[in-house]
Structure formats: structure tokens, C-alpha cells
């Protein structure tokens, strides 16, 4: 049995497809349809030039004190009256006026068994099974400080085009919809498990979804990366203390950073800082902070962060076989999506 995937977030077979479709299709729901999450746009009563409050999905809770925050970030509840919002650039205003992203939800998963194996004690050993344990971010609009992403006008237009096409019910074809590797950020963001394996010379992420593989060479001499450009890019890592710093570039084509279509050009790069966090008494988690560097679509680097929970009891993956559906002659090869106009 196969179930066509109605959303450009990809397709998969079986009942998992239904769950994922339900999860992702919430992106096209009207604003606040589920009444759980405020829109990411300006708060009620604020002017159009005000940014959303800090502490949003991409950023940490706002904090007071004497923190020195970057332009555009807010720092906690003001002493008297609403904080002065940042002055949005025309590109940021364009994005702020878009329909807000759908509220992400987490697929249900059984709890970690009490006798589950734990991750290795070596902080540089990330091996095992993890998954994004926070609600899916349909659109990464804010950086880690809660400031709006520094879109160039070109970047804002690309995102606006994609969001509007989705809202109009005519979403664009993207890599996932045609069963191609959707890029490292998209892969990591999905709330489905992935296995990390490590050797001395490389790290490999094996994702449940999209036949995803993300290879990181720790020594390109000993573990050479393919000469041809890859959908997942070319990733080289080095250790900065116990943080693995991975630079991914040389993408075969431009990619969508999330299911709403936050863009990264083929010339852009992602700098991922990966560390295992152990607070000494609980189950460690994995943290990946991703810096997006892409002068085509962003005026400056900006950073988002995700956390990944430990789920060894989910180490047996569901099968992902999108080709069975993509190639079905009885259905549209592109799931009914339309080609995205190119600049």
C-alpha cells in the first residue's frame, strides 16, 4: 500500500506517511488554526517594523541582565512598556508579512526504557541513535538570539515565493518531493531517527528518511570525499575541544533549509558545531548549532540551533521507499507539485 504525499516535504509509504503528512501538512493550515502558537509575525498592536518577541522557536528564552546582544535581538521583558523593536530591512519586512509557518508537532514515540544503553562516555563519540526532539521548525525565521534572519532581498523573494505558492495550494517541487537528498539541515530537522557511526577518519549520519547519508571527513587525505558534487554537499570536520566543527559546502544544487523553503544557494555553506551535552545525571543530548553563510540570500551569517534526544530503543528504522511512489505511472511523477520559476 502506498499513500501519496500531499506536501512538498516528501513522501513515504504506509501509515508513517500519514503521520508525517499530517505533521507537515500543518504548514499549509491557516494561521493559528490550532490555536497553540502565536504567529511569528509582529505581535498584536505592534507596528509592522517590530520583530517578534525573542525566545521564539529558534532562539533561547529572552534573558535580562547586561548581555550584549546583536542588533535586532531583544533581551527579556522591558521595565516599562513594550521593547523597542528592531528596524526591519525591506527584505525582513517582506518575510514578516508572510503567512506564519505552521505549528510543528512531535510524532508520538515510546519513552526511553529505564535500562536503555547510554551514549559512550567519550565526549567525542557521538555514535548511536538520535532524533530532533523539539517540534519541527517549518521555517527558520529567527537566529539563535531571536533576531530575524538577515535576508537579502533576493533571499526574501525566494522564500516569499515558496510560502505563497504553498498557501495557494500550488507548492513547488523540491528535492524531497522527487525523492532526492534534501540537504543536511532538512534531514536533521525531521523528527525521525538517525544513526551516527564514527571511525577515526570520518563520521557518518544514516538517516531513516530519504535514504539520507551525511558523511563528514575528519581527514580528507585518509578519508577522501567524492570528487563530484553531492546533493548533501561536501563536509569536512575538525575538533574544537569536544565540539566537532563541520563545514558543508559545494552543494550540487541550491537546497531548502526547511520545508517552507528557507533558501541556501548552491554556493552557500553551513557550519555545524556538534557537541554532546551531558549534564551529569540525565540522558545526554546532542546539540547542533548551524551557521548559515550565504551572501546570495543573507547579508550576514546567522545561526540556528537544534537539540537531539537519545533513542536507542528506536534504532530499528521504519523503511523509507519513496521511489515506489515517485515512479508509479498511475500518479504524477512530481506529486502534483509545480516547477519553481528560476530567476
Amino acid at each position: 500500500m502506498t499513500i501519496p504525499f500531499p506536501f512538498p516535504g516528501g513522501r513515504r509509504s504506509g501509515t508513517v506517511a500519514s503521520a508525517l503528512a499530517l505533521l507537515l501538512s500543518a504548514a499549509s493550515a491557516p494561521a493559528l488554526a490550532q490555536g497553540q502558537q502565536p504567529p511569528a509575525g509582529p505581535p498584536p498592536g505592534a507596528s509592522a517594523t517590530q520583530a517578534p518577541p525573542a525566545g521564539g522557536a529558534d532562539g533561547p528564552p529572552a534573558q535580562g541582565g547586561q548581555l550584549r546582544l546583536p542588533p535586532g535581538a531583544s533581551a527579556g521583558p522591558p521595565a516599562g512598556g513594550p521593547p523597542p523593536g528592531p528596524v526591519l530591512t525591506p527584505a525582513q519586512k517582506l518575510v514578516a508579512e508572510l503567512p506564519p509557518p505552521g505549528p510543528g508537532v512531535l510524532p508520538p514515540r515510546p519513552p526511553l526504557p529505564a535500562d536503555a544503553a547510554m551514549p559512550a562516555s567519550d565526549p567525542r563519540d557521538f555514535q548511536g541513535t538520535w532524533f530532533n526532539n523539539q517540534p519541527l521548525q517549518f521555517r527558520s525565521q529567527k537566529d539563535i538570539y531571536g533576531a530575524p534572519a538577515p535576508y537579502t532581498m533576493e533571499g526574501a523573494k525566494v522564500l516569499a515565493r515558496r510560502v505563497k505558492s504553498l498557501a495557494a495550494g500550488t507548492p513547488f517541487i523540491n528535492a524531497s518531493a522527487i525523492c532526492r537528498p534534501p540537504g543536511p539541515q532538512w534531514q536533521r530537522d525531521l523528527n525521525f531517527p538517525f544513526l551516527i557511526t564514527q571511525t577515526r577518519d570520518y563520521v557518518e549520519f544514516v538517516f531513516e528518511e530519504y535514504h539520507g547519508r551525511w558523511y563528514i571527513s575528519l581527514d580528507p587525505q585518509r578519508a577522501p570525499l567524492p570528487a563530484a558534487k553531492q546533493y548533501m554537499g561536501r563536509s569536512v570536520g575538525h575538533w574544537d575541544g569536544n565540539t566537532l566543527v563541520v563545514e558543508s559546502s559545494d552543494f550540487r544544487q541550491s537546497i531548502w533549509l526547511d520545508v517552507d523553503g528557507t533558501p541556501l544557494s548552491a554556493k552557500g555553506k553551513l557550519i555545524q558545531r556538534i557537541r554532546k551535552v551531558d549534564d551529569g545525571g540525565h540522558v545526554p543530548f546532542l546539540e547542533i548549532a548551524t551557521t548559515i553563510v550565504d551572501p546570495t540570500y543573507y547579508t550576514a551569517p546567522w545561526t540556528i540551533v537544534r537539540s537531539y534526544g537519545w533513542i536507542p530503543h528506536q534504532a530499528v528504522f521504519a523503511e523509507y521507499n519513496c521511489e515506489e511512489q515517485v515512479g508509479d505511472p498511475s500518479v504524477s511523477p512530481d506529486a502534483g507539485l509545480i516547477p519553481e520559476p528560476q530567476e
Partner: peptide, 12 residues
């Protein structure tokens, strides 16, 4: 594990 997503219902 509990099959909360019904993954075992469909032949693969």
C-alpha cells in the same frame, strides 16, 4: 516497542 505510528501494519 509500542508501534505508535502503525509502522508494522504495512508490508515493506
Amino acid at each position: 516497542q509500542p508501534d505508535l505510528l502503525g509502522q508494522g501494519l504495512v508490508p515493506t
